[in-house]
Design a protein around this nucleic acid. Structure first.
Lengths: 201, 201, 201, 201
DNA sequence: CATGAATGAGCTTTCATTCAT
DNA sequence: CATGAATGAAAGCTCATTCAT
């Protein structure tokens, strides 16, 4: 039974990850110096390194936190979606394009940054790939269900899942870097329509 | 008749941009130090700054060069595509996903880096947005033609164009950062199929 | 009771300014690289930028420190000078030309460098002008007192103050750049004499 | 007897020195890169080094050109001044403070820059000191004449000359870096008055 | 004579990381 | 646990100078 001051490591780590999220959303990853992250988290610079070995580790933690958020958001919508796999697919797309106002623009910006950073740092790439893979696995099984129900075979589920996720990720990127390119409110319905076309005759 | 040393700025700029392309493909933008770019271009470090004011300017030049390449590649395929707008749309998608082996993996990696960098530097964003806008304009007019022919009205062309471009851009990102997520050879046909679904009844 | 490492910024800033003073005196501002300043202050190069945003800020801090020193030195002499404004004026000139051996040749060299640098950098110019203005204000009021007492009107005080300060500043410059041009020990008495001629009938 | 193209070296050197004068006046010595000097002189960068071994040599040439100008200006005024040494002294001061509109503000700015640069570069210091020494020699002999005529002995001429030149040089510095400190039109008359006080009973 | 490309040493500045307090 | 001073290895950039043309 531990004595003395209770640990607040987890809370602090969360604070720091949240600080990074804020700073990335406002200044990009370049502006996310340790000092800036610390300030946003209400700590001194040294504190960040007390709780994370490197700055990269903070980014990795952020990546997996964003993954958790996506999973939770999808699970939430799933419980309302009923058994129809096509409806569940719609729920997946909506969860990721965050239709009903629950989107966190900070998260979108951060996710694009993580995608970019993953090009450079293998460790970040692993974290990014882990989230992508989990999304893909989910999506592939959804696509498989649809295809089996519609066409009797799950053939093509992987390709469909990849294309749908590509459209989602691409929508993030365009929304962030060239927002004027997407007519407001069209992203989710259009991608839903594209998705259905892959899964129905 | 001019005396003195002849100008070679254009050739050198091209060399430097090419050097950046090489270095980005291998080490990402972070690894693309001026020294590395210069070495790849066969110059001393100062040489890069003789021909470009800042490192960012090299990246911007690279962005517009990639845009030129895309445009040229599409124009090439267009001449073979005939008058059917749906076929021309396929040509567009193929040109961008570079089916028949003419793809430059360096270019894909660099483009993703530019997209990421455009989040941080407004000037890069302008260059990125310029290329995106040109692609979108082309795509929107293609979509418009298809829709008018198929459905009698161009309504929805902008949303369709954005979604298709999102899928293309997302495919770049996934291909770069999580290559195992896309079954080989499926990207272009799947996206072609999705695109058609938006433009036909 | 604060935890953590205690702040020592003020002391360090003072050390760094002192380091700059040393280096300027020996090698001029051109020789005053950040590395040299840091070494003179007993720090690593990064340390200077931890306590000052830019190198220029160190120079500005030095300017205002030199101004403080001048003011203190004059206040010291003032307390001995008695009420006669002409004697107080003598005290001003002596304080600035540092008769009784309290002169800091480093300070003179640095001041000339600051004057020169103020031609190039607006921010340095502001700092320089602030010191000059304070000296001028003091001097003008001294001249005004003298003139009122001697001639019944303070007319001409501003012109007299400017000329006296010009002579002082010029003496710094000549002493630094062409020391042989001033017969030793003559600067202060000669300028005192010139000053009196402006303030008496 | 030389054949072929006539040399235009002297003219080119003059052009380059003039270019430096322009650039210093506008951007200070820091802004006076070889490229900027060359551009102001209508040459390519290499041209400057064809005519001058180093950039410093251009500055030195400028220093002696400014000295020549001062000498010529004084000689001109001297011819109008008549035999009275006090009047000739006034002419000297006026020549240097350039009363009747013949002042070149570029020259004043450049001279202050040269004074500053002379602190750093021994070679520049020599050039600066040469001009100062010539002025001082002239001034000393003028002061000597005055003193002998007024007081029967030239004693104190050197100190007087130094103080007068200090006031002139200081006026340049103040006029350049803190122009508001000198009431317009007062510099020359006030310094003339100060000078006379040193040379008369 | 003149050009302008090219060099490379030098600079200031940033910043992740370490560590004494 | 936490602070914040300090480090030192980069980085981008400038520029006098050289030299092929």
């Amino acid at each position: 039974m531990p004595r003395g001051r209770p640990k607040n490591t987890e809370a602090r780590r969360e604070q720091i990850v949240e600080g990074l999220l804020d700073v990335i959303a406002e200044h990009g990853y370049d502006g996310a110096s340790i000092v800036a992250i610390a300030r946003a988290a209400g700590l001194a610079p040294g504190g960040v390194h007390y709780h994370f070995k490197t700055k990269q580790d903070v980014l990795i933690a952020l990546a997996s936190r964003l993954g958790d958020t996506l999973r939770r958001r999808w699970e939430l919508r799933m419980s309302d979606a009923g058994p129809d796999p096509l409806v569940r697919l719609d729920a997946f797309i909506d969860a990721h394009l965050a239709l009903q106002g629950s989107a966190d623009p900070r998260a979108v910006a951060a996710w694009v940054v993580i995608a970019a950073e993953s090009l450079r740092r293998p460790e970040v790439r692993s974290a990014y790939a882990a989230v992508v893979d989990e999304r893909l696995t989910t999506l592939r099984s959804l696509c498989g269900e649809c295809l089996r129900e519609q066409l009797g075979s799950a053939h093509g589920a992987a390709a469909a899942a990849a294309a749908i996720l590509a459209a989602i990720e691409g929508a993030y990127a365009l929304a962030t870097a060239a927002p004027q390119s997407i007519p407001p409110g069209t992203a989710a319905p259009t991608i839903r329509k594209m998705a259905r076309s892959l899964l129905t005759a």
